[in-house]
Amino acid sequence: MIPIQHFLVLSSILFSLGIYGVLARRSAVLILMSVELMLQAVSVNFIAFAVYLSPEQFTGLIFAIFVITIAAAEVGLALAIILRIYRNKATANVDEVDMLKW
């Protein structure tokens, strides 16, 4: 019997690695991959809560389905933006794109 804490800790580790990747990586594509890791962590959490805490309603499962759906849309859009930036600036490294500066 696996207690719920196991899944939660796994999800925490996955999410923290995602955070590290988002903050440490320079390439926009790699940052996007780290974001995917964070989304996976969230899905694991949702499903764990659904099957342990409220099996009658399983809202978490439904949420996980939507997370996957939106993530697919998000990846498509984000990659299009990255392509656009690469074409305009000849780089996909986020720290070289600093047009927001004062």
Partner: peptide, 14 residues
């Protein structure tokens, strides 16, 4: 591949 704020990233993630 990694930016200069890698140490801070590790700290925050930890």
């Amino acid at each position: 591949l990694d930016g200069p704020q890698r140490p801070f990233a590790a700290l925050a993630a930890g």
